[in-house]
């Protein structure tokens, strides 16, 4: 029983991390059809900024956290201005390849300007200590992660439902041109989408950093690969789908760790991605999106 609770908590905290990242990808995709693979480098930028702040300014963890969030938001908005604006109205494949290009540039910039080796940032370890609830041993980080993801999602939902700009963003995901015809500035809608996406990446960055304690050029690549998959499984462009996909992926992953024998542990990835491919075969557009009609089937 304790074992089950522990694994469920594991799945929740994994899922929370993926959901945060997937949500960031989905909000940008829903509005401009861009699959932002450079999302991982936004996380890495947050990680490097933690190192820079604690080396140059102060080791105060709260300053480091706020600084990383700001850097993640700025990086995200800046990438849109520099790289994604020229391909804003292009087809998704063009956007995807551009994002791959941006991701490569940033990864290699980190490599060139900072170091190819991991850099330690230990200020955030304090978020991660083991506690016991009843007889279940868990880490505070898991609680922080799950709770702040829940808070972030709630705030985001409120913003999208209640504020007039949030309504405009939801409208933009349905018909971007029509929103412009309503006099709402396209640049602002897109910039806010990237800012929100960056903020979510920054949040995820804090938790990944608290767990790993070091940052390297490919820091964000694997988490975002997973988030990407979570998005697709949930239904690309659907925010609810991104959250669902994130938690589902977390569950599959923990499930694999439980089910697979130790000797196959390394193959976890292969099984997770295999399941994902099967889900897509079952529902090519993801779980939460209605089947698309491509005209009449002949």
């Amino acid at each position: 029983m304790d074992y089950a609770i522990q694994q469920i908590l594991n799945a929740l905290s994994f899922g929370a991390e993926y959901a945060l990242l997937a949500l960031g990808l989905a909000i940008v995709f829903s509005i401009m059809g861009l699959v932002n693979f450079a999302h991982g480098e936004i996380i890495a930028a947050g990680g490097y900024s933690m190192f820079a702040i604690s080396a140059l300014l102060t080791g105060n963890p709260w300053v480091v956290i706020v600084g990383a969030l700001i850097v993640a938001v700025l990086t995200s908005v800046l990438l849109e201005r520099l790289a994604f604006r020229p391909v804003r109205y292009a087809d998704p494949a063009t956007g995807l390849l551009t994002a791959f290009g941006v991701s490569m540039i940033l990864q290699n910039l980190f490599l060139l300007l900072v170091s190819p080796r991991p850099i330690a940032v230990t200020n955030l370890y304090f978020l991660n200590w083991p506690i016991e609830i009843g007889s279940v041993q868990i880490s505070t980080l898991q609680i922080f992660e799950t709770v702040s993801t829940a808070v972030a999602i709630t705030v985001l939902v409120l913003f999208l439902r209640m504020s007039s700009f949030g309504i405009a963003m939801r409208a933009a995901s349905l018909d971007f041109e029509m929103v412009r015809l309503m006099g709402i500035k396209a640049n602002r809608v897109v910039a806010v989408a990237f800012a929100v996406s960056g903020l979510l990446a920054g949040l995820a960055c804090i938790f990944i950093m608290a767990r790993r304690g070091s940052v390297d050029p490919t820091f964000g690549f694997n988490p975002v690969l997973k988030a990407f998959v979570a998005c697709v499984v949930g239904g690309f462009g659907s925010l609810g789908g991104a959250v669902l996909g994130g938690f589902l992926l977390g569950a599959i992953e923990v499930g694999m760790l439980v089910v697979l024998p130790q000797s196959y542990g390394g193959m976890k990835e292969a099984f997770v991605f295999g399941i994902v491919a099967l889900i897509l075969v079952w529902r090519p557009n993801g779980i939460l999106s209605p089947p698309v009609e491509k005209g009449d089937k002949l």
Binding site: I167, A168, R170, L181, I184, K185, A186
Partner: peptide, 30 residues
């Protein structure tokens, strides 16, 4: 496009193009 609308040109387009997932009230708010 945006500034034309702000200058006072409003379009009710062909095919209506309402925001179908938004509520009626939200459509008007937009």
């Amino acid at each position: 496009v945006e500034d034309r609308q702000r200058a006072g040109i409003a379009l009710a387009p062909e095919g209506r193009r309402i925001f179908s997932n938004l509520t009626v009230k939200e459509n008007l708010l937009i």
